[in-house]
Design a protein around this nucleic acid. Structure first.
Ligand code: MN
Ligand code: MN
Ligand code: ZN
Ligand code: ZN
Lengths: 143, 143
DNA sequence: ATGCAGTTGCAAATGATTTGCAACTGCATT
DNA sequence: AATGCAGTTGCAAATCATTTGCAACTGCAT
């Protein structure tokens, strides 16, 4: 009858794995990450964190995001014209379409494009380390 | 027997068109643009400019880049982990592969990818305003 | 040659992110 | 449960790229 909070625990396991301490601020941030359905920036994460524990600092948010990025637990996206946004690194790889009017981020995935990328890189004599594919668009007026 | 310097003149025409004055600093920067074969950042452009006219300021480089970007004469690329880089907006659209070891920028073009992008955006109900497609890679070890 | 709005250089401001440092606190060890 | 100390934190100050206020200049239309 009790819901095990698998999400948070998973992250904590990953952190212990990485040999870092599970502190109060980190636990709060991990909790936020666990049910993060969007792509918030550091300030937004900071505000969500403060709502849970008012003692947390923005520095710690930045430090924790960097730490999590380092162990591959989250992805950082530097979309055009704004601060970095983050998202948990769970699930399949995908790219993003950013609504330039609202800032909304829509995810999409194209095996074809990923494949073409590889062909291109190899043709040029390179191995892909990572890539960035972002479409900036405006909602098509309904007809 | 004389080589007409069409490049610089072209830019100047575009600027006059936009109703701005052709000043000394601008003429210098336009000259640099005209035979820019790479993707330099503002500081690099500033240094090339100073080598021609020591009185030019970095602010003016930034202001001029913004101006030129505004009239569509150049493109600004905010590649990962560094300052914006610029390139004249001549020729076909292309995307970039960045060598993460050297910073070198290699251009490529794929009609297929551009087309797939359009399909994706339209399927999601959006019109593409612009996009960013960057491959970050490392030179494949020769075998 | 003249006038003035557009430009410039310089310094200071900005915004996002990082960092130095002294005060804390997990947590492995008694 | 008490102890010790390296890892962490909050805060303020620093960094970095870029922008901006402002007073001094200068294209260029008249
Ligand atoms: Mn995403
Ligand atoms: Mn290019
Ligand atoms: Zn992708
Ligand atoms: Zn493209």
């Amino acid at each position: 009858m009790n819901e095990p909070e698998i999400h948070t625990t998973d992250y904590e396991a990953a952190l212990r794995e990485a040999g870092v301490r599970i502190t109060r601020p980190r636990r709060v941030i991990l909790g936020i990450l666990a049910d993060m359905g969007d792509h918030p920036d550091a300030m937004e994460i900071f505000q969500r964190a403060v709502a849970i524990d008012s003692g947390i600092s923005l520095s710690t948010v930045y430090r924790t995001m960097k730490l999590l990025e380092g162990i591959g637990a989250i992805h950082r996206h530097a979309f055009a014209g704004g601060p970095s946004r983050f998202e948990p690194a769970v699930g399949e790889h995908h790219d993003h379409l950013i609504d330039i009017d609202t800032g909304d981020v829509i995810e999409f995935q194209s095996d074809k494009i990923e494949e073409l990328q590889n062909e291109i890189a190899h043709r040029l004599g390179y191995e892909i380390v990572h890539h960035r594919f972002e479409i900036y668009g405006r909602k098509r007026k309904k007809r």
